[in-house]
């Protein structure tokens, strides 16, 4: 698999380590009333789709960026990649 790194172009997936579902970016509030519940959900439960999956890859043997890669789990076709930082900032409304 080749991952289209937004800064470095196509890179071998071997250079990366895999974390899992990109929803892990959105860590719940540990101080909230229902934190135990939301953290159980966050830590342990997964959508685990057969098909398009957005997932976190770390460019360990590379520039050490976290990427959100969109990949089809039934074919391994890679449909796109973004910097996880951009994804996280966009979710927070773009502010730094």
């Amino acid at each position: 698999m080749l991952i289209p790194h937004p800064l470095l172009g196509l890179r071998d997936a071997q250079e990366f380590t895999y974390l899992g579902d990109a929803s892990l970016i959105h860590r719940p509030d540990g101080m909230a009333e229902n934190a135990a519940e939301t953290f159980f959900d966050y830590v342990y439960l997964r959508d685990n789709p057969a098909g398009v999956h957005r997932e976190l890859w770390f460019h360990e043997q590379g520039d050490r960026s976290w990427l959100v890669v969109t990949r089809d789990t039934t074919t391994h076709e890679i449909l796109g990649a973004e910097l996880a930082r951009d994804v996280a900032l966009a979710a927070k409304g773009g502010a730094q």
């Binding site: 579902d21 342990y44 439960l45 057969a50």
Partner: peptide, 18 residues
């Protein structure tokens, strides 16, 4: 390996990745 896909049809999310 199909556990997640099948149980999703019962509305369940599992502590499982395939």
């Amino acid at each position: 390996g199909m556990s997640g896909k099948v149980m999703a049809k019962a509305g369940m999310r599992l502590p499982i990745e395939t």
